[in-house]
Simulated scan of single mutants.
Amino acid sequence: MFRKLVISVLMIVVLAGAFAGWQFFAANTAFPQKSKYLYIYTGHATWPEVLKSVKDSNLVKSPGMFDLLATKLDVPEKLKAGRYEIKNGMSLMDITRLLRNGTQAPVKLIITKLRTKENLAGFLGRKMEVDSLDVLTYLNDSLKSLGFDSNTVMAMIYPNTYTYFWNASMQNIFDKFHEEYKRVWTDERRQQARNQGLTPIQAYTLASIVEEESTIRTDKDTIASIYLNRFKKGMRLQADPTIKFAMKDFTLRRIHTKYLSVESPYNTYMNAGLPPGPICTPSVITLDAVLHSPQTNYLYFVAKSDFSGRHVFTTTFDQHVKVANEFRTALSIEQQKRAIKDSLERHK
């Protein structure tokens, strides 16, 4: 009788161990998505908070067993802040090892076109652990030693893909931005800027205007030549995108006369020379269009009346007025057609 009891107890122990092992090593994620992320914030990397986040996010089916395993493997003592990718189908052991080893999932920051410091701060605040207000402070105060002020600091930011850990420090984030800036500004590009009578920051600022003026790659260098001609002659640039920037209204499709008197150092209709800093983050392609812009006599340009996105370039104001009137007439006709079409659609 005693022997049977011992065997029964042993079987129960073995089965319990097998069940526990199955719990530890079998898939235990509780969500249908391909993956979810567990965020452990700097200064808040305590095990009770992490365990609560695991439960609240419905990451695992067995939070109690996860707590037991993690505690046995000293995870609470070895916990590191970061962003951890929990993939569907991971076991409790997989997740525990991930946290124990501090194996973070990197964040890819894909910067395309940003217009303002606030845009950049908000972008970093959404993607990284840093606070957007702290980013703004850093942009305004902490990059002067690198040659940038609160107006020109965005000239350090180039569209590209940057890879970080989610909890990277502010300095680490901007160090990588500055490395890209130095990579772009080779000795050859610096010489090309000098040949155009520009500093790197001025070239970037002009490129930001060209970037906003046209998406047509083959037009960009000629547009740049027009602004360079105006700049060298002491003419006002009269660049419409600078009005949008001055008004902080990037939805404007047409710049009406009433907008041209907006009080701002970025209003190139009222102020001579380049604006105090860039109005967006231009691509390197556009920067090179500025640096390689040809010698022309053009002083004016306007969009073609066929709405192809291309431009007509002229040397005199009278020529410009003629072409501009053609575009306005074509635009009015196009708008009337759209209005009629919309009206017919509404009355169907």
Rank of each mutant, 00 (worst) to 15 (best):
R190P: 02
D221T: 06
A30P: 01
Y41D: 15
F174A: 01
S343V: 01
I333H: 03
V153T: 13
S150H: 05
V302F: 02
D175R: 15
N167Y: 02
Q171A: 15
Q196D: 10
R3G: 06
E345W: 04
Y164D: 09
E263H: 15
D240A: 01
Q23F: 00
A45R: 10
D74M: 12
T71W: 13
N167T: 03
T281A: 10
T281D: 11
F25R: 02
N119D: 14
L287E: 02
H320D: 04
Q196E: 14
S57G: 08
A239T: 05
V60D: 03
T296I: 06
R194D: 00
V184R: 07
R310C: 05
P275W: 00
I7F: 15
N88V: 09
L99Q: 05
R100N: 15
G234D: 10
E118L: 13
L120S: 06
D141H: 11
N151R: 05
S57Y: 00
K55S: 08
T222N: 11
Y266K: 13
S62H: 15
Q238M: 10
K61T: 04
F19Q: 01
L38Y: 04
S62G: 07
T46F: 02
T296C: 03
V60C: 04
L124E: 03
T71P: 04
Q104A: 02
K144L: 04
L260C: 04
K304A: 13
